[in-house]
């Protein structure tokens, strides 16, 4: 049986997820993900076309809060957590492209 996921697909998924894989990892994950996904494809043996999808078991709707301002965090506390901060802002290396 062909693997449920190809090496190229695993490489693409890793890029989407911002992970770098060595060749050996790529090999291993392709096999392991293939096995798990192959198992999952069992579900496709069922005709579920009439079944609605349930994303969440929680049935309550319209949970809202009132539009009231509550205290924010202390800025120094927050910036102390940052790997790099400059001028009261979070510093990052250059950004190569605009946001999508």
């Amino acid at each position: 049986m062909s693997n449920a996921i190809s090496r190229e697909e695993v490489a693409k998924v890793a890029r989407l997820a911002r992970l770098t894989l060595s060749d050996a990892e790529l090999e291993l994950y392709t096999e392991q993900l293939g096995q798990i996904l192959g198992h999952a494809l069992d579900m496709n043996s069922l005709d579920l076309s009439d079944v609605v999808a349930t994303a969440h078991p929680f049935g309550v709707t319209n949970v809202v809060r009132e539009d009231v301002i509550t205290p924010s965090l202390d800025r120094e506390t927050v910036l102390a957590m940052a790997p790099d901060a400059v001028d009261h802002r979070f510093a990052v290396p250059r950004i190569l492209g605009e946001a999508p």
Partner: peptide, 21 residues
Amino acid sequence: VRYGLRVKADDVTAMMEATRT
């Protein structure tokens, strides 16, 4: 970017990848 580990890299995408990896 905001907390936890950062592995330095030249650009932000490379930094995110190196950090998560």
